[in-house]
């Protein structure tokens, strides 16, 4: 059962990342990897909220496997984030590469803290 939840979450999360990146690229012709940035920050917000809800007893372990380990885990990515940062640096856009790292980590952490705080405000 646990494996099924992770698999189902992964089967939704990864295509959502693919579609988000596709949507962002088709609307903004930018060298900056906005698609990965957006999915990572949104995933951090959702996982933060889920973690806050679980701490308050409002999210079951099954829901955490489905939405946390499966969906948010597959929606967000470290490998593409790293590779895109390297590509930016290699193409000469070193400032963009540095901004990508700082902005992704700052916004991701901010979203995680905000998600936890929001869930605690709702359920605690």
């Amino acid at each position: 059962m646990n494996w099924v939840l992770v698999i189902v979450g992964g089967m939704v999360g990864a295509p959502l990342r693919y579609l988000t990146d596709h949507a962002v690229r088709s609307r903004h012709d930018s060298a900056f990897p906005w698609g990965t940035f957006v999915v990572n920050v949104v995933g951090c917000l959702v996982l933060g909220a889920l973690t806050g809800a679980a701490t308050a007893g409002a999210a079951s372990s099954h829901l955490q496997l489905l939405l946390g380990t499966g969906l948010c885990g597959a929606l967000t990515t470290y490998s593409t984030f790293s590779y895109e940062t390297l590509r930016l640096a290699e193409s000469g856009a070193r400032l963009h590469a540095a901004v990508n790292v700082v902005a992704s980590v700052t916004a991701g952490l901010g979203a995680a803290f905000a998600g936890v705080a929001a869930a605690q405000a709702v359920w605690a």
Binding site: N40, C44, V46, G73, A74, T76
Partner: peptide, 10 residues
């Protein structure tokens, strides 16, 4: 992309 995770990291 499914193996690595940014959300669990944060």
């Amino acid at each position: 992309g499914g193996f690595t995770t940014f959300s669990t990291y944060a």
